[in-house]
Design a protein around this nucleic acid. Structure first.
Lengths: 264, 264
DNA sequence: GTAATAGTGTCTGTGAGACATTATGGC
DNA sequence: GCCATAATGTCTCACAGACACTATTAC
């Protein structure tokens, strides 16, 4: 079965068959470009941040945008996302988690041409050593809360909405999966993990209750037996456990009986 | 700002600028077709069913596939999904809910050419009156549990995976949203709603506990004050409430203390 | 009568949230 | 001394699951 389709040689079986065939003719499909855009999130200095690159070309020149680009003709979407991230954010910036977010395809989202973008969500820890590209003048992490404000950039295209969707996906992922550990490097403390939850969700959590919840969730973290000095005593260190889904979930939204408690 | 981009006239600012520009040249984007495919689910006769259409053309001729087709050049993705559903499944088959599932873009998923498909999930009640197209020989609902078995069809392309993803999304949506009501026509009984949950999740639920849970969830259902004869007594009728998100959720997965209870 | 379902009431185990307490070490 | 944090323990309230019970109607 070759790639060159010969569908036009098939005999129509009923009335609208020819129209059906015409719609599937490879030479007749609408010219739509397919790109990938990556929302790469990390937690640094108590802020949830997203990687943005400064555009050097028309349109939205000098505005900040998500790293991304065209999908290769024989390239899987996931591979395209990883490649674009490596090209635009530095080879070493491998996210610990990368998942598809959704597709964005409003007809007017790019003024040059019709572009359908498949957005990805990436999570990675804030690496202490600077990575190639990420701290260059044209690629840096921005605080998510600063986007759209005076202190932050104005995003190109519909990337503000994509970032918002990615942040919301990440917030939700912390509840039901162990992906919070993707934001910290091993080994980490329970407090490190709590600060991830607090930063991503933007709320304060009870240290005592959080600790009990994390340790009672099977497979979330594994004690290393080592300790680290916090400046005020010693604290135990942990590694990622084998679990990916959390049972029970760690809910950010308090249960019904807690609607009166505003602070954690 | 015309659609014909003149990016090649921009002067390169640094070394890889020309390569960057070339990648954004509209005449150079890879020839990838964009389609939509719709996983339209309904509950009929105690079965979770999905709408499939029989393919009349190469490839996978006579196999069953999801309704779908090419996205128009100036057409929004959501609009394309609604249009294809109307064209292939009958004009009146308006789903009560339609949301994007995700994009599928493996390079070899269509043998004819590179196709990226944006899949949608649609939910609708089992309408008592037959609709145009849906009961025709080339478009019908199939039980999801029969797919891939002797009693069911073999799906074209990667549509079996898309259906599986859609079903899983629907199962998850019942937990956190009021979308279960999208499967029933108003007015409905609590038992009607329970049968939706039982059918979609494939498990039995405690009628008494389910009733208490539904009625204690704000905005899920609203009593009409009317009653309907069930053959064995009378039962109250309800309408959809205003809530879309459920607080608290109605979890299919039992909580941690219930891991020993296998039946409901 | 039996069988099946709608609807109400009640008990128990679990866990989330809140709070108290102790230990440690920097200031 | 004070203060912040790690870590443990305990109390209470709400709810999920389980079960009992009544009422109704078909058979």
């Amino acid at each position: 079965m070759s790639h060159g389709a010969r569908v036009t040689s098939v005999q129509p079986r009923h009335d609208d068959e020819s129209a059906f065939l015409r719609r599937y003719d490879p030479r007749a499909f609408p010219p739509i470009a397919v790109t990938v855009d990556i929302v790469l999130l990390t937690v640094r200095q108590g802020q949830l941040t997203v990687l943005l690159v400064r555009r050097g070309t028309h349109p939205h020149r000098d505005r900040w945008a998500l790293p991304g680009g065209f999908v290769g003709e024989h390239e899987d979407l996931d591979d395209a996302a990883r490649r674009e991230l490596a090209e635009e954010a530095g080879v070493d910036a491998r996210p610990r988690h990368l998942e598809q977010l959704r597709a964005y395809g409003a007809p007017d989202r790019d003024p040059r041409m019709r572009v359908v973008s498949v957005a990805y969500l990436g999570l990675m820890p804030d690496l202490p050593r600077p990575r190639a590209g990420t701290d260059a003048a044209d690629a840096r992490f921005w605080s998510v809360s600063d986007l759209g404000t005076e202190d932050g950039p104005t995003l190109a295209f519909d990337h503000d909405r994509i970032v918002a969707d990615g942040v919301e996906r990440a917030r939700s992922r912390l509840e039901y999966t162990s992906l919070a550990t993707s934001f910290v490097e091993e080994p980490f403390t329970i407090a490190d993990l709590r600060r991830v939850y607090e930063t991503v969700w933007g709320i304060a959590l009870h240290p005592a209750n959080f600790r009990r919840k994390v340790l009672s969730t099977d497979g979330l973290v594994v004690p290393t037996g080592q300790e680290r000095s916090t400046g005020r005593g010693w604290t135990q260190l942990y590694r990622r456990g084998g679990a990916t889904q959390l049972h029970p979930p760690i809910l950010r939204q308090a249960r019904t009986n807690a609607h009166l408690t505003l602070d954690g």
